[in-house]
Computed example of a mutant assay.
Amino acid sequence: MSNPKAEEKKELGNKAFGSKSYDEAIKHYTEAIQLDATNHVYFSNRSASHGGKGDWADAATDAKECIKLNPSFVKGYYRLATAQTELGNWDAAIATIKQGMNVEPDNSQLSKLLRQVKAKRANAKRAASAASAAANTASNTSGVGPTTSFASTTDRELLDLQEQFITSNREYNTVKANIHKSQREVKMNELTKAELETIPVTEDAKMYRGIGKMFMLSTRGDIMNHLDTCVEEESKREESLKNKAEYLERKMKSQQLNIQELTKSKE
């Protein structure tokens, strides 16, 4: 049986999601989960909200919890596979889709997503496979001379660069997802602090601080200090992640230029 108060929070989240106010939607779905952590729909909806923000790491986490709570809920598999795809985890996404299709073989959304994921994986591997085939052909060609040796070396370098670019791109997507996560944490803590400041201070007021899935009785001051610390730590983490993202952008640009130059040298 659904918790009426949790359902109210879910409806508020649905309304916010419909207007693309993803932070607000996440806040309401989180409140619904705090009231009833056994309802898989709340995790599914929060996963979709994280996805709307591009926070795919958290979207995947909530989708996994949704599936854990209700393995027959097909939308949970769709949410998880979408997040895994955006993170560049194509093999994992395909495995998730197949699990979902075991539950509902004729699901059109999963079938379409499976085709899309396979196409993306193929595109990512095509260049590397072509370079690998070229390298193998060069090494097996008779009459190996200086020109053939150079071609073989160039093919190997090209293959290495393409694999490095794929790895860098996957790492970049993960970093961007973590940046969104830090930004969300900062905003959520700031919103919580703002709401606490509106509550009148009374000696008998009881306040609780969330620790995982538990709540601990705390003073107002302790909670405010904890929120300030969280905001400071996540802001520093966000700055560090942004620096890493900029570094990876420069690295990928350099790798692309090197790939282009090597490709031209083969013509």
Rank of each mutant, 00 (worst) to 15 (best):
Y172S: 11
Q116T: 14
A63T: 06
T263H: 03
S182V: 03
Y247N: 10
A95D: 03
G18P: 05
V231M: 11
N107A: 09
K15C: 06
K20T: 13
E8F: 04
R79N: 15
T219Y: 03
S129M: 11
G145A: 01
L217T: 03
G143R: 07
T153P: 00
K213R: 08
L227F: 12
R115H: 10
N70S: 09
S111E: 09
T148S: 04
S142C: 06
E190K: 13
P200V: 04
S47Q: 02
Q109T: 05
F43M: 06
D36S: 09
F215W: 07
A205F: 02
G76N: 04
E86Q: 15
Y22D: 04
V175S: 05
K253S: 15
T202R: 14
E234M: 06
H226D: 15
T148A: 03
M188N: 05
M216A: 11
G52L: 07
K264V: 06
N173T: 11
Q256L: 13
V231K: 06
K181M: 11
N178S: 13
A92T: 09
N3K: 05
S2L: 11
N102H: 03
V201C: 04
M207G: 01
N169K: 14
K15T: 14
D160M: 12
N123Q: 13
E246W: 04
E185S: 10
M216Q: 14
A194D: 13
N225T: 14
N102D: 10
S132G: 10
I94A: 00
R115N: 14
A93D: 02
S108W: 00
D91G: 13
M252W: 00
D55R: 06
N14E: 09
Y208M: 03
K125D: 13
D62R: 05
K242N: 07
M1G: 12
S132L: 13
I94W: 01
A57R: 07
N140C: 07
E7Q: 14
I259F: 06
M1C: 05
A127C: 00
H50E: 07
L227V: 12
V103R: 02
Y29V: 02
A124R: 04
A124S: 14
S139H: 09
V74W: 03
M214F: 10
A205E: 10
K251L: 12
A57H: 09
